[in-house]
């Protein structure tokens, strides 16, 4: 198929950017979206124009490195699918496709379609872990974990950290990302000791960087792992409870 692309080009973090239009011919229906961009880049290189910079790595939808706005939608038209797993059969011959980087104040553009998502790491560093120094673990079967709990925890833990939720959100909120990690750890028995401190620390770090959630629900629709917005409600409930259950605040037990 033949396509017309409008691609955001920006030489560096401080440079002004704009859209450039490229025509691309003979794209295979079986090519992935990123393979189509590879094809464009081959052609640009041959013409002496610098290739489009875009982040990508595993191309299996799991590393979370890729992600662009495709016609205004993070990761494009297919639900539950990262950009690298989107295939050109979802488009039609003659289509015009607009490709932009994630747009969020917390994710500044580094070049073309590449953005800096390091605030996500700051949120995890603030409490997105269970403190279990190497060597200190008890036998893995010592604590049974109800299957339902581990299944829900897994649904949240499946987050790939791509940033589509932030890009989709009109407020550039990172609540789905943060809630997914909080739910993963807070749902498990192993995560209880740090539950309230974790929740407060991660929510407050999130708010240093990102906008506030006003329940639009765009994040859930954009999420390539289809992580449920229910986890945000769950996080909010835990955040409220943390205010009076946190033993560091009340001096009482945390049950």
């Amino acid at each position: 198929m033949d396509l017309t692309l409008r691609v955001w080009r920006q030489a560096g973090p401080k440079a002004a950017g704009d859209f450039k239009t490229y025509h691309v011919e003979d794209v295979s229906r079986d090519a992935s979206f990123l393979e189509m961009l590879d094809q464009v880049n081959e052609a640009l290189n041959a013409q002496g124009e610098e290739p489009i910079a875009f982040d990508h790595d595993c191309r299996e939808g799991i590393c979370g490195m890729c992600g662009v706005m495709i016609n205004g939608t993070p990761h494009g038209p297919q639900r539950g699918t990262a950009t690298c797993q989107l295939h050109m059969r979802k488009f039609s011959d003659g289509d015009m496709i607009t490709v932009e980087p994630w747009r969020a104040a917390a994710f500044p553009v580094l070049r073309d379609l590449v953005v800096d998502r390091s605030p996500f790491d700051r949120i995890i560093e603030s409490g997105g872990y269970i403190t279990a120094p190497t060597g200190s673990a008890p036998d893995a079967n010592l604590i049974p974990v109800p299957k339902d709990a581990v299944d829900s925890a897994f649904d949240a833990a499946a987050c790939i950290g791509c940033g589509a939720c932030v890009a989709a959100c009109p407020n550039s909120a990172a609540n789905l990302f943060t809630a997914a990690k909080i739910a993963h750890l807070n749902l498990l028995p192993q995560g209880q000791a740090e539950r309230w401190n974790r929740t407060v620390a991660m929510v407050e770090t999130m708010e240093e960087w990102f906008g506030s959630c006003t329940n639009h629900g765009e994040c859930e629709t954009a999420c390539p792992q289809e992580i449920s917005i229910d986890f945000i409600a769950w996080m909010n409930a835990d955040y409220v409870r943390a205010q009076f259950k946190n033993p560091s605040k009340t001096g009482r037990d945390n049950l």
Binding site: I130, A137, H184
Partner: peptide, 22 residues
């Protein structure tokens, strides 16, 4: 064996049966 213990303590959601064991 220690790796499984370590990962479980970190909250790695390994598959479990209905009794809650791995």
């Amino acid at each position: 064996n220690e790796i499984i213990d370590q990962a479980t303590a970190q909250g790695v959601p390994f598959a479990r049966d209905y009794g809650g064991l791995l």
